[in-house]
Amino acid sequence: MKKPEQRDLFPGALEMMILRTLKRQPLHGYALVQHIKRTSNDLLQIEEGSLYPALQRLLKEDLVKAEWSISSTNRRVRIYKLTAAGARHLERQVSSFEKMLEGITRVLARGES
């Protein structure tokens, strides 16, 4: 059994990371996983099982769009792209995340002193 905290950091974190990654360049699902893994220096292991539901969610809310195409290894893949709405959403999310992070950091710092 997978423990929930391994799946996701907090609600929305996976989506935020997906959006952030897609903002840089459109990617297919597998590349997304690899990319997040790489950029986090293997600190964040994305549960691949939760990736696709998350992607479907984003698709549904028009934050990303998907297109079938052929990968460099000659496979049929679905490339995900950030939409304008997705970019706006990401901005909001990041800013609220930063605020939250700042708050958490302050509380943690207070606790130490």
């Binding site: 297919h28 699902g29 597998y30 691949e48 696709y52 479907q56 990968s71 290894t73 496979r75 049929r76 893949v77 679905r78």
Partner: peptide, 11 residues
């Protein structure tokens, strides 16, 4: 979805 996940698996 199935097709997509198949290709993911293959990769």
């Amino acid at each position: 979805l199935v097709a997509e996940m198949e290709s993911h698996l293959q990769m």
